[in-house]
């Protein structure tokens, strides 16, 4: 009974086109299905789950117990290590972000020329961005070694006796900031791409008006690059709040928690002390911090980011 009308429908050309159209509307979902399933299972689901876990006390052994905002209260009032990890991470971010942005932009400006052999340096400076891992963290651990380390031997040649970098609460963080600046390569590549996009005519017009190189940098290059700089600034801030491997390998948070970074504390809370609920609360606070910082930067960006084609205020 049912098969007969279907057959007639299929024979009629018009409706088959309609069916084809309908199929084309559905097949898109099939293409994105793996991502969509993964998004729900591994991104959205866990994201929401950690929110609920943050209100529970759970060590994987006993059943979870609902304790409301207790974890959040502990974090702010009763966990000096959390405060320390937060302060350390902010300290690192405040120095790391401007430094790496300026260095990357400076090197990009130097390399932004059609000179023979300059491509070699672009590759060279990008290198630490691909080797960032345990091996280079080990390298830097020994670069900053008090006696045999490269750094102290180098400044020793200048007659300066270097500090015990990673063993001192005062110098451990500067060591991390120096090390992180080494990885400016990926930012530099982005800036080089941005510099290629600045129209030549702007420089030529500026030159006719008698602008110096410095004027051109401040009045043409920086404003035209501001969207790229803004974007990299947001990404670098987010990244610097998530530093982990280097801290785990170089100092393990020491000495005296001087390099206890946020994620290191989160990792220990969750996977060493099995404080699942507490670590989830930490993760959510991290999320809110990052969200707030991004929104603040977005708000402030109106004052300095210039999008071409828009009238500057």
């Amino acid at each position: 009974m049912t098969s007969q009308p279907q057959a007639t429908v299929r024979r009629a050309g018009k409706t088959s086109v309609f069916g084809w159209w309908r199929w084309r509307r559905v097949e898109g979902y099939l293409f994105i299905a793996p991502w969509l399933v993964g998004f729900v299972a591994f991104v959205l689901g866990p994201f929401l789950a950690s929110f609920f876990l943050s209100f529970a006390d759970w060590n994987l052994v006993r059943p979870p117990e609902w304790i409301g905002l207790e974890h959040y209260r502990t974090m702010f009032t009763n966990d000096p290590k959390w405060v320390k990890s937060f302060v350390n991470t902010v300290y690192f971010t405040v120095f790391h972000v401007p430094l790496i942005l300026v260095v990357a932009l400076f090197i990009a400006l130097l390399l932004n020329r059609q000179l023979p052999g300059i491509g070699v340096f672009r590759t060279l400076f990008y290198l630490p961005s691909v080797t960032a891992g345990v091996a280079t963290a080990i390298l830097w651990r020994f670069v900053f070694n008090y006696r045999y380390g490269l750094f102290n031997q180098a400044i020793g040649l200048l007659g300066i006796e270097g500090p015990n970098w990673l063993g001192s609460t005062k110098w451990a963080m500067p060591a991390f900031i120096i090390m992180s600046t080494w990885g400016f390569g990926s930012l530099m590549v982005l800036y080089l791409a941005g510099l290629q996009g600045v129209p030549r005519e702007l420089y030529e017009a500026a030159e006719i008006d008698g602008a110096t190189a410095w004027d051109k940098l401040l009045k043409v290059t920086i404003p035209m690059m501001s969207p790229v700089i803004f974007f990299t600034m947001i990404m670098t801030v987010i990244g610097s709040f998530q530093i982990f491997t280097a801290a785990f390998i170089m100092t393990e948070g020491g000495p005296a928690d001087a390099t206890l970074f946020y994620i290191l504390h989160l990792y220990r809370s969750a996977f060493q002390w099995l404080r699942i609920g507490y670590a989830s609360a930490m993760a959510w606070i991290l999320f809110l911090i990052i969200l707030a910082l991004t929104l603040i930067q977005l708000k402030l960006s109106r004052r300095w980011v210039f999008y071409a084609g828009e009238e500057p205020n």
């Binding site: 969509l36 866990p46 994201f47 959510w284």
Partner: peptide, 24 residues
């Protein structure tokens, strides 16, 4: 809409979903 969801999911820190993913 789904493409916007995709873009914004890039902004979610990996560590926020780390623990529940581990539990799964």
């Amino acid at each position: 809409f789904l493409f916007l969801v995709l873009l914004s999911s890039m902004m979610l820190p990996y560590h926020v979903r780390l623990i529940p993913t581990f539990l799964i």
